[in-house]
Amino acid sequence: MNRGLALVSVLLFALSLMVGDSVFGSAPLSIMVDIRLPRSALAWLVGAGLGLSGAVLQGALRNRLADPGLLGVSGMAGLGSVIVFYWGWSQAFAPALPIGGLVGAGLGVAFLLVFAGRAPSGSALILAGVAVSALSASAMALALTLAPNPFALAEITFWLLGGLEDRSLTHLALAAPPMLCGMAILLRLGTGLDALSLGEDAAASLGVRVDSVLRLAAIGTALTVGAGAAVAGGIGFVGLIVPHVLRPFVGERPGGLLVASLFVGGCLLTLADMLVRVVPLLLPVAQTPPLGVITALLGAPILILLARKAAP
């Protein structure tokens, strides 16, 4: 299963290099390397990170509604990036951009763990998430309004809905290392998350250090989602959809979902980004839709479905 998903990832990545703004098929090497390669690689990495951190958050919080976008973690990461970017800190020191993102994401996760508790009921978690989301969105609008850069507010769509337009190899080089570190941390949590299915006491009695699992889940999510949102904005719903779609096929064991969620998340966002790129070729529209619109169109119905199931 995972091998097949890896193969599909490679094929989609190759296809993604072929799909361009104006032409299908071959393009000058410079376009392939400088424009499509970073964009495709970021699409796959950001999607994979969101899918994986969704699976880990759901396992750690024992709640199938957990998703970095829905819970405001992506929004907080975007807020951190906005502050660093428009106040010029990232021009002075380039890695400040992903660092701003992961500090924001870290604050978001920490707030959720403190405010909603460790095994929150569906409603407590969603309420906390809505609070974080709303707070981060309005703080972001405020930050963009106050920013010394006069064009900042015009880019609010990018930060709220995400996108991969004009991402360069520099963005890839900045975001990939923390994202890969975060993924490496998250992928090692399988056994701990499996044990946590039985509750914290039972997991502790199995020799699992529950505190350290939760802490690593928060750190890994902050690294992955934070660095991702710093370069791709707040793309929502991927972490919610991916584990949900996978469970009927790979079962509900949290540890068994991690690798599959990584690959399917990467494939999903690669596909969504290709769709974004071909829309202007197929439809008479002047602008490409933001990437987050595609994932929200897929994710919102699934969220409604899950919320109906979770309601008492």
Binding site: S197, L198, D201, A202, G207
Partner: peptide, 20 residues
């Protein structure tokens, strides 16, 4: 903590969060 290989503990209302 007791040695988890020697001592097994089953909490009250033991259940699973996921449909394993």
């Amino acid at each position: 903590p007791a040695d988890p290989r020697r001592v097994a503990y089953l909490p009250q209302n033991a259940g699973s969060a996921w449909a394993l």
